[in-house]
Simulated assay, not measured.
Amino acid sequence: MATHNRDLGVHTRELARSFGDRTILDHITLTIPPGQFVALLGRSGSGKSTLLRALAGLDHDVRGSGVFRVPAKTSVVFQDSRLLPWQRVLTNVLYGQPRSRRQAGRALLSEVGLAGRERAWPAELSGGEQQRVALARALVADPDLLLADEPFGALDALTRIKMHELLRELVQRHTPTVLLVTHDVDEAITLAQRVLVLDSGRLTVDLPIELPAERDPGAPEFQRIRRTLLTALGVAPVAV
């Protein structure tokens, strides 16, 4: 059972989850300091989304030798924007929030580049715009922890680059602790301060990313980190 974390970071000890005879999370011990941006990589079926769902409080069958702790104010962004198609954009942003957050919702729509689209329907937005709304909805509650499950996986390459820039700006402004689940090694290196690799239910790599805020994929250190992570994922690195 998760408890609220007074220091606003994330702590798990011996976190485990099985489905039948199959172990998905094999006694995960993890600490994420407050304000840190962490990316979680792993092959399909490695347990990434299961870990995120556990931290989000969406899976009540996880277990462990110790209590795992997360901030009380936690928001989640999924690959699918999960907007309510029968509600307008601002109403979607404010879903579950008190009316007192209405101005904050408008301000966040402006931050994500959608000022003036408050009364648009979700169907009138592009995929990238829908994910912008989803980010605004996640941040309107001023969360201490932002969990993101492949939020840009369904977007085209150009839109994904723009969304990387937007997410970086939003995190700098709102300062939540972030755990980003992704299959994209370059995305992880571009955004995160630390990258984890989950393999067969265990954390096999815990790598700090000591790069400038503006990161050049062609830089030697970026490429060195990329090779390290691809090797850990069992993929032969390709020179770029």
Rank of each mutant, 00 (worst) to 15 (best):
H4L: 13
R6F: 04
H11V: 15
T12D: 00
A16D: 07
A16T: 14
R17V: 15
D21S: 15
T23S: 14
L30G: 06
T31Q: 11
L40G: 06
R43D: 07
G57Q: 10
L58Y: 00
H60V: 00
R63G: 09
F68S: 08
P71I: 01
S75C: 13
V76A: 12
Q79L: 04
S81L: 14
Q87N: 08
R88T: 03
V89L: 05
L90W: 02
T91D: 04
Q97W: 06
P98S: 05
R99F: 02
R102I: 10
Q103G: 11
S110D: 15
G113P: 02
G116C: 06
E118G: 07
E118V: 07
W121F: 14
P122E: 09
E124Q: 15
L125S: 02
S126V: 11
G128Y: 11
E129D: 03
E129A: 12
A136N: 11
R137I: 13
A141K: 15
A148F: 04
D149W: 07
F152K: 05
K162H: 15
E165C: 00
Q172F: 06
L179W: 09
L180P: 12
D184Q: 01
V185N: 00
V185G: 01
D186I: 02
T190Y: 09
R194C: 01
L198V: 10
D199L: 04
T204R: 03
V205Y: 01
P208S: 03
D216V: 04
P217Y: 04
G218W: 05
P220C: 13
E221I: 05
R224Y: 03
I225S: 00
I225H: 00
R226H: 14
T231I: 11
A236D: 05
